[in-house]
Simulated assay, not measured.
Amino acid sequence: MAAKSRRTANINVREFENFFQGWLVRQEHYLEELRSALRICDESRDEDLCDLIARVLEHYQQYYEEKSRIANYDVSLVFSPPWFSPFEQSFFWIAGFKPGLAFRILAASVDDMSKEQSERMETLKVEMKTEERELENELARIQESVAAPPIVEVARKDNLPVDGEYDTADMESVMETLKSEMEVVLANADMLRSRTAERLVEILTPVQNVRFLTAVTELQLKIRMWGSQMDADRRRR
């Protein structure tokens, strides 16, 4: 049974890694489209830019859908993903980039927002930070519960053999509860990431969106490249 479970886990990881590699290739293609649109923004119709923006956002949504699928299989894989380098993971907040990072990228890539846009962005930032803190507190509560009763009591009880074997039913029940709670936190974190991006895009003009999404995509791919280079350097030592 354990061997079968490991084979299933390996298959799920390989399937996601294959999806992710294809997703990254498409990500690079979208970056070229965004850069091209940026060069001719003044000549482009808003409808064309909006179509590109919608396709880029849909591309990110595909990633979240696949991520949710593998998290439902084993949420621990998403919190310690083997398809990301340690350097990439150093930027993570609840198994992904922190929503607040979007505002830092925005500040560096869009410098022509109107007063109304700036005020709406500030309101969005305050709301986002409140939700970030709530999720951080919830994750901390779950992590603390791992070393707190009743889990410790269950673990101690499981150290007592029952008819020559260990009774693990209680422990499995507790771990299933923890797994479910982690899945909920992850889903809410991904929802916050998506919702923050969608609302931010609604505030910006099409041209501003192209500049913002170009900067986001460039940063993500650069972090990926730097992480790969660091891993390669470590292997050569």
Rank of each mutant, 00 (worst) to 15 (best):
A3I: 12
K4V: 07
K4H: 12
R6P: 12
T8P: 13
R14T: 00
E15R: 15
E15Q: 05
F16E: 06
E28D: 02
E33P: 11
R35S: 07
S36Q: 02
I40R: 12
C41N: 07
C41T: 15
C41E: 11
R45E: 12
E47L: 10
L49D: 07
A54P: 08
V56P: 04
L57Q: 06
E58D: 12
H59S: 09
Q61C: 13
A71G: 03
S76K: 09
F84I: 00
S85C: 01
P86G: 04
G96V: 01
F97N: 00
K98I: 00
G100A: 14
G100V: 15
L101M: 15
R104Y: 02
A107C: 08
D111T: 14
D112H: 14
S114V: 04
K115E: 13
K115V: 15
E122L: 08
T123H: 10
L124C: 04
E127T: 08
E132Q: 11
E132P: 04
R133Q: 03
E134R: 15
L135C: 02
E138C: 06
L139N: 05
Q143G: 12
A147K: 13
P161K: 01
T168S: 06
D170P: 00
S173K: 13
V174P: 02
E176R: 04
T177M: 12
V184I: 08
V184Y: 00
L186K: 06
T196D: 05
E202F: 05
L204E: 01
T205M: 10
P206F: 02
V207E: 11
R211P: 01
R211W: 03
T217M: 09
L219H: 00
Q220F: 15
G227Q: 06
R234C: 07
R235W: 07
R236Q: 04
R237M: 04
